[in-house]
Design a protein around this nucleic acid. Structure first.
Lengths: 344, 344
DNA sequence: CTGAAAGCGCTAACAG
DNA sequence: CTGTTAGCGCTTTCAG
């Protein structure tokens, strides 16, 4: 295990010069630099990041905090963050809440261990105490999607997404449109869910259409749960909507499968639109609003590293809206129900 | 930012005693211990892990290396590993190859930075140089699934899995059984794919059934790709198998959807069985061999931490076979094709 | 541009 | 059981 000392000796320079040559900080004659790099590679030198971190205060390590690694959106966003971090030479420390299971220990212990240069907080909702605590640790934080007061956040316009998805359905001639989203008030995806739902309600209202309570479903964002909810909804022909807007693609998968199991033809008897951009949507023909999570992860890291490296100089615009795009496939069309009953 | 020095002073003991009291290593009078913990919490003391790591050589940080965070199996295994690590108070540093994109830099740079107490290598195939390099760094490694010569590895018996899945189909009366797996020789999932395929071929041979080349498909483990492959396979009624064994659930999803799109009834006209235990299999009625990836992740961490903590004392049994279980749902049944053509 | 020297904050012998 | 004394391996003033 050669240390920088050995490198310096071999190169015939001081430890300080070796350090400067290796890190690129401070000026070193090209001659010295070459000698040092040569010596380093000859010895197979790898720096001790522990020592470096201790001395410099920078750990080249970013923490990514999210509620579920296991869900497509988060895993894909994580992949994007990983790319950006690898390219920048940073390590990625993963903190997976697994729902709420590790919420407290992550927030109360792990994040405070000051081994992180920055934190990416995905879909997190922090109370003021938690925000305070983490900011007090002096760690730059960038959020994605969650409502984090006092923290720069990337987000999509969820209300707009809800409106856009609903309007797509409406523009095809649907009037009986249901929505499957997340919990109203207290859920982890609070703002996201309520934003998309608000967009849905807004669009319906703007079209002069009623939002029936029975058509506003609540699910946990999983395909399985959405399947159950939707099947229940669709089972009664009299009450059946002709279109469903799901707040995530995974839920839309559930809805499509439920409809198929009930013998409903898609899109003729039921149109479905989702949100996310899950690849598997291709083989299900799912129309969706792609939010390109990979980009969100990369962009968030970019913002975070800027914060980390500029050491809090230019805070930049606090929030940033990410773009989405409507991807139309075969799960949506004009309603073509044989049974032409109208809404009650 | 109170340091251990401040804690020691406040508690009226030496820094060493404070350290011992806080870490639990070495004996401290209960009186001193109380004084120290009281002082620590009064000051809101959080240890610097950089300093601790540098001084002790332990970083309480485990690296998890995998080919794709984005695939269900890996994400779920990762979740299991995360649980075990959080419970043990360890950080998890994620290295996602994203296929092969970051393979070199992870193996050549990141892993050697000696900030890890251990590495969990999931579905990795290392050449001898890479193995050497990483072992030379003196880091304990535990593998899952990949063939890692000289490294303790957890795995399922992939040949047995292939045999079992195929035999399930055979026992239902199928004789025309196809297989969708991964690449034969050079793929990342080499051993896994070839093991499952070998089990399939073995079972077929044992039943005296031919394995047609056209029925042995190669996919990249994604639902979308398997969809395409399977659709192609099923499009020709004359060549059509009555059952398909897919080497992963995601590929089985693709197969089921392809079959449905061709108007084939499942399981009457086509039985499908997968491997993994993906939750979404529930709503597709997918019969599968559940390999409980979450457990694999937890168990692998357990093994790894044992290695890390016992400091290489007892190496333990080199390899360990993990259990799987057959979960029968509605995607498999006896063949009930109307068209009773026999294989050519 | 370079070297010497002083830590970064904690742990680990080693005596007591 | 406890305090003293050295470092862990690098970065960083501060002179030169």
């Amino acid at each position: 295990m050669a240390g920088i000392k050995d490198v310096a000796r071999l190169a015939g320079v001081s430890q300080a010069t070796a350090s400067r040559a290796l890190s690129g900080k401070g000026s070193v004659s090209s001659k010295a630099r070459e000698a040092v790099t040569a010596a380093a590679s000859e010895l197979g030198f790898v720096m001790s990041y522990h020592a470096s971190s201790l001395a410099s205060g920078r750990s080249h390590n970013i923490g990514v905090v999210l509620p579920f690694v296991n869900r497509w959106y988060f895993a894909t966003l994580l992949e994007g963050a990983n790319s950006a971090l690898m390219d920048a030479g940073y390590d990625l420390t993963l903190y997976d809440f697994q729902g709420d299971r590790y919420r407290e220990s992550v927030l109360g212990d792990f994040l405070l261990r000051k081994r992180l240069d920055g934190v990416l907080a995905v879909s997190l909702q922090l109370n003021s105490h938690e925000t305070e605590q983490i900011l007090a640790a002096g760690i730059p934080v960038v959020g994605v999607g969650g409502p984090l007061p006092g923290i720069p956040t990337l987000r999509i316009d969820d209300v707009e997404v809800g409106r856009r998805a609903t309007n797509h359905l409406l523009s095809l001639g649907h009037t009986r449109v249901a929505h499957v989203g997340g919990e109203h008030e207290y859920g982890r995806n609070f703002q996201i869910s309520s934003g998309r739902r608000a967009g849905y309600e807004e669009a319906m209202a703007a079209a002069g259409l009623p939002v029936r309570e029975a058509w506003s479903l609540i699910s946990d964002y999983s395909a399985n749960d959405a399947y159950r909810e939707t099947k229940q909804l669709l089972a009664d022909p009299a009450e059946r909507p002709t279109a469903i807007f799901c707040a995530s693609d995974e839920m839309a998968f559930g809805a499509i499968l439920a409809a198929r199991d009930l013998g409903l033809r898609i899109p003729d008897e039921l149109s479905v639109i989702g949100v996310d951009g899950h690849e598997m949507g291709e083989i299900l023909g799912l129309t969706t609003i792609d939010q390109i999570p990979r980009n969100q992860g990369m962009r968030a890291v970019e913002r975070l590293l800027a914060l980390v490296q500029e050491d809090g100089k230019a805070a930049g615009p606090a929030d940033e809206l990410m773009q989405t795009r409507l991807v139309v496939r075969s799960s949506t069309s004009a309603p073509r129900t044989l049974d032409s009953k109208t809404a009650s």
